[in-house]
Design a protein around this nucleic acid. Structure first.
Lengths: 212, 212
DNA sequence: GCACAAACGGAACATCACTCCGTTTCATAT
DNA sequence: ATATGAAACGGAGTGATGTTCCGTTTGTGC
């Protein structure tokens, strides 16, 4: 790519150590499968028959299994794609909102991600080895995304400086876990509470009292 | 029906509105199934084939389905039985340990329960209607159990008085949720931390700093 | 003992994850 | 343009698992 070629026409991405460019149809089908899986998982849960995913993507099950040898591979692919999207949203928000607001908006976005991933989270903690790498992926992508926003907010004086990005991610994820009550707004309220405590004006030596 | 009948020998539990006593073999098989399910779920997860449960219980699958028409019914039965056992442990601990210690011991017991129920928790939050009643069952049985211990501890001056039993249950359950790190001792450490803050002598206005 | 309702067990059926392989399509050299 | 081989495709087939059905066995009350 971009490198001239004449004779390097077949060189593709060899130099970079990447795999050869996949065939166009293969790439198209792979994208269609992930897209279809995301859509179907959202409406019918991750336990939906793979045939439905294949059908929605307009491919045969053989093709599906070629790209995703295990059902879990498909789930992982969708999860990673959504993590990527969530992380990417941070960069965009950083250019659209003032620093302090960007953090809050992104956390709402992140909360939505967590909420819709409840079904995946179930699979995730099922002990299946296939998902062992996801937590690292989660952290590797989302922590820098949030840190970037936090840094900007802190530099702008809009937010306390003693906040660890990863702690905040975990805290929000845990807070949004619906305990034995089923209020869908609970997570949001808890997070707002947390945010109130993070704003610069508040007493940094003491977490906000809970509102019980 | 159920009306008199010579002697009351067969009256059994009619008076209380309960169903007739089931046949002895039916009761035995039902117990065996729950016992087998508990055992098999612990070693192989809740997605284990029902045949295995039936086999371990020494009954046919037909019998299993007679007692538990849905797979979820079996899961629910195991869950409720364990909630009962956990709640019952409170009464026993209350007689065996001094009040303050009883609370701590019971919370450890409760934490074990939560930890082993991770697989169930996954199913629980899967949106399946079959589990809708479990949270209420959870609260109805465990909150009084803990409250009893807390009351005793507070009366003995061993613990702060401003603790809501249900909040504590939920907090411990959430704390023990393994975030994207997989340290099995994490939950216990977090709970210990929480307990330190609950003891009477500590500074009630500020939770203990986390030990990261 | 006897009768019969209740419970049992496992073969049979339905569904789904996953495999296999003959057919089709793409990318490249000529 | 066309030929050619590697790669990808699709869907019938296979095995495993959930669920039902029904002939057989067993417990209970007389």
């Amino acid at each position: 790519m971009t490198t001239d070629m004449g004779d390097m026409a077949k060189d593709k991405a060899d130099r970079t150590g990447e795999e050869k460019r996949p065939r166009a149809d293969a790439q198209r089908n792979l994208d269609a499968l992930v897209q279809a899986a995301k859509s179907v998982f959202e409406t019918s849960g991750v336990d939906v028959p793979v045939r439905e995913v294949a059908e929605k993507a307009g491919v045969g099950v053989g093709t599906l299994y070629r790209h995703f040898p295990q059902r879990s591979d498909l789930i992982v692919a969708v999860y990673r794609k959504e993590v990527d999207a969530c992380a990417a949203a941070a960069a965009e928000l950083a250019t659209q909102s003032p620093p302090g607001e960007a953090v809050e908006r992104w956390l709402e976005r992140y909360l939505d991600f967590i909420a819709t991933k409840r079904g995946l989270a179930a699979a995730l903690h099922s002990g299946d080895k296939a998902y062992a790498g996801l937590p690292d992926y989660f952290r590797a992508h989302l922590e820098p995304a949030l840190r970037q926003l936090l840094d900007a907010a802190q530099a702008a004086g809009a937010m306390r400086a003693d906040i660890d990005a990863y702690d905040l991610l975990v805290a929000v994820a845990n807070l949004s876990a619906p305990g034995p009550h089923s209020d869908p707004q609970h997570g949001r309220r808890m997070m707002r509470l947390l945010l109130d405590g993070l704003r610069y004006g508040s007493d940094v030596s003491r977490p906000p009292p809970d509102d019980r």
